[in-house]
Amino acid sequence: MWARGLHRRFGAVAAVQGIDLAVRRGEIFGLVGPDGAGKTTIMRMLAGVLRPDAGEIRLEGVDVVADPERAKPLLSYMPQRFGLYEDLTVAENIYFYATLFAVPAPVRRARSAELLAAAGLLAFRRRLAGQLSGGMKQKLGLVCALIHTPLVLLLDEPTTGVDPVSRRDFWGILYGLRERGVTILLSTAYMDEAERCSRLALLHAGAIRHCDTPARLKAAMPGALLAVVTPDARAAHAALAGAPGLLGLLLMGDRVHVRVDDAARRAPELRALLAGQGIGAADIAPVEPAIEDVFVALLGPGSPP
């Protein structure tokens, strides 16, 4: 699946301006970016439910912009907002989507048993979808999306608001799909999820700023990363602003990630600076960047073009 030169405006707002992407078969491709970066708009255009103002989308050779109806049997789209019928039961929702995708009844029964088991929803078949928890709803959405074995799966922030156990189930299903050659494109706000993708596109203001594997994106991050672990990380974060050789600062719970031009030279300087401010720095050590660091480094203010 690839897209070229995608543009979409909403009134005066240019939501997506000139997106190019190519997703290989069997890949888990992640769209990462802050709210309003255009993730949902891109997803909708790829799913054939929103027309781009300009640009081209091909899915397994089908022109999605010109003939979205021919593309729809090939894909499954799970919108950000829960899109199933809350006044229908789990089983009824599955039956509905299976039938719309012309899944034969024996296949439907076998697949729905298999998927419901993987999602931990077998016991909830007769429950109304509206009475499921947030995580169970998202898993049901995935079950309905997968009932017809799509070639391409489009997931718009599928695990937002989902508990960790459900997220693990969710990813277990996604990895299983990748084995079968299903192409998955998902948008996410969770960095640990972004790290599980085979490739990532970092979106900002409707454009892709960087697109590569998580490892190569980390390598591309300029400077080196130091973790400052202190009892008062917040105060340290404030104190470190304006330190010499500083490229970036990120508060991460009980620690501050400091990106500097030269780790060996700056580490003692930082320790001295903190001590001068009366903040006892317990530990300053180089760390491997997490994707969140990369994200901030590559999309934040003063980031490389």
Binding site: V49, P73, M78, P79, R81, L84, E86
Partner: peptide, 11 residues
């Protein structure tokens, strides 16, 4: 209810 978006993504 937000069910339209998913409905129109089907064939």
């Amino acid at each position: 209810r937000g069910t339209m978006e998913q409905l129109i993504s089907t064939p």
